[in-house]
Measured scan of single mutants.
Amino acid sequence: MATDAALRRLLRLHRTEIAVAVDSAFPLLHALADHDVVPEDKFQETLHLKEKEGCPQAFHALLSWLLTQDSTAILDFWRVLFKDYNLERYGRLQPILDSFPKDVDLSQPRKGRKPPAVPKALVPPPRLPTKRKASEEARAAAPAALTPRGTASPGSQLKAKPPKKPESSAEQQRLPLGNGIQTMSASVQRAVAMSSGDVPGARGAVEGILIQQVFESGGSKKCIQVGGEFYTPSKFEDSGSGKNKARSSSGPKPLVRAKGAQGAAPGGGEARLGQQGSVPAPLALPSDPQLHQKNEDECAVCRDGGELICCDGCPRAFHLACLSPPLREIPSGTWRCSSCLQATVQEVQPRAEEPRPQEPPVETPLPPGLRSAGEEVRGPPGEPLAGMDTTLVYKHLPAPPSAAPLPGLDSSALHPLLCVGPEGQQNLAPGARCGVCGDGTDVLRCTHCAAAFHWRCHFPAGTSRPGTGLRCRSCSGDVTPAPVEGVLAPSPARLAPGPAKDDTASHEPALH
């Protein structure tokens, strides 16, 4: 009773807030009518008042009428009001819900409408889902798969039609296919003929059939049928067999079959498995989609049935006599038709004709302190090069084509190399640097090759510096006499390219 009084008091307290929050009759008014909170006449009256005075006034009048009803109607109103779709449509209802007392429970059932309790003993237990329907569909599909699609060729003596089998029958139906081979029951999904010589313990000319048996419980189990008994694959494991010639990621696949039913060829011909030897223990289905393919039931050349050999690369099948050149017997292992072999060759040939990528240039590290003349020119003028003790990398590039010797140069053309002071002394051009340390401070000019250098860098042994005729380390061993002091540049003949010694390969005349 306390809860009923509290709900009535809360409705009177929030009546105006609810009326202002509800700006549309749908969905709240319609939901109240659906849950029998508002009768039909009051529903029509509220809609009429909404058209006349507006939605807030109409709902305020409806809530005032609701306060005169019993506690069950008020409880049902609060339940409908706080439904998710009403809270989404009328956003101003959320503060009312947040301020609702926590001790007021809106989930209690309506009085007088409590459903009768059902004894637990009368409640049926839930049924577990079964796979009976899938099993029945598999039974119905198996006879259809064994139905012949056409008439065999005159040369083929193997013609068999499976008798119709009602689904209610649980007995196995067997077809006489000759040579002791028996087909599987209607619940078998796949059958492959297997030679009895590969099964340990088999006697006589009995041949087993590799099947997948579907049981009534819905589970499946792969086994071997020899005669009327089934054997699990673990009985046929043979770890010492060295003649297993397995197909790549293979499961067994029928390579020879008669049109209309699988079996042995007439005249004692023995149908073979995809792999010879003992049956392997793992009978998992292969991951290669080509091995799941269903080959055609007629020859791809003459479009006739009979004894066919199936290609492992495509769905086509052929007569042995229709092949070019014809085959006398079934080859062992994987067999592919000429079209598949030709496609494989065409895929391999473009790969062989692809040009080989060019090898990157060989990189040879230079000892610290040495650099090529090109690196000396590329440096920024007026700045010493940083990191001189790091190992430089010199790339061996292809030799350029031989060019004509340089033409003779006048001494005026070499004027930018040297600057003559007032006393006739050779001065260095701006930006000249030593080729060893890279520093341009207090550098000297070689009178023979006009290269800038430090005496301490080229002659670290402490050799005394002569007063005139300074030469760098590369030119100090040259027998050519030094030019007379005061000459602007060496003779043009000295600039012609010539053979250089091994220790002077990195010091070429550089223009500054």
Rank of each mutant, 00 (worst) to 15 (best):
G54E: 07
E53R: 01
K52A: 10
A193P: 04
P162H: 15
L32N: 00
A117L: 12
K245N: 04
G204V: 02
G208N: 01
D34T: 00
G267I: 12
A271F: 08
R149N: 06
W78Q: 00
Q57H: 01
L81Y: 02
S169A: 07
P124F: 14
E137W: 15
S185M: 00
P116Q: 14
K253A: 13
K164W: 14
S107A: 10
S185V: 03
P233F: 01
A145C: 11
R247S: 09
L97W: 00
P115N: 10
E53A: 11
G155H: 15
G227V: 04
S153K: 03
H14D: 00
R190T: 07
M194F: 04
R190P: 09
A73R: 13
L28R: 03
S241Q: 10
A205D: 07
I74K: 04
E40H: 01
S185F: 04
K42M: 05
T72W: 02
A121C: 14
L122R: 07
K159E: 09
Q212D: 01
S248N: 07
R9F: 01
A61M: 05
K253R: 07
K133I: 01
R9S: 14
G218E: 01
K235T: 10
T130N: 09
Q173G: 07
I224F: 09
L75F: 06
F82D: 03
L13H: 03
G218M: 10
E229I: 02
K253D: 00
P39W: 04
P101D: 03
V118P: 15
R132E: 02
L255A: 08
L106M: 02
S241R: 04
S239G: 11
E137Q: 00
D238V: 13
A142I: 09
K235S: 08
L93I: 03
A142L: 12
T151W: 15
K114V: 06
K83L: 07
T130K: 05
V256Y: 14
L175T: 09
Q182V: 01
F43V: 03
E270V: 14
S220V: 06
L255Y: 09
L175M: 11
R127L: 05
R8P: 01
G150V: 07
V20S: 00
P143F: 13
V206P: 07
Q212A: 01
L87E: 15
K253E: 05
V123F: 14
A5P: 07
V104C: 03
V104K: 00
A134R: 05
A21G: 02
Q213N: 07
F236Y: 05
A205N: 06
L63V: 05
S168A: 08
E136G: 07
P125G: 11
P39F: 14
V104G: 01
Q225W: 05
S187E: 04
S196R: 12
S196I: 06
G91F: 02
D23R: 01
L255M: 00
V80E: 01
V188C: 08
A193R: 09
L28F: 00
I74Q: 02
T147H: 13
Q213R: 05
F59L: 02
G150P: 08
I224C: 06
P176E: 03
G219C: 15
K120A: 07
S241M: 11
K245H: 14
K50G: 14
M184V: 04
A191T: 13
L11E: 01
L13T: 04
A258F: 13
V256S: 11
E270A: 07
A19P: 01
R127V: 07
Q157D: 04
D70E: 09
S248K: 05
Q157T: 07
P162N: 00
A191R: 13
P200T: 09
R110C: 04
L29S: 01
K114R: 07
V80C: 00
F236L: 06
P163N: 15
R12P: 02
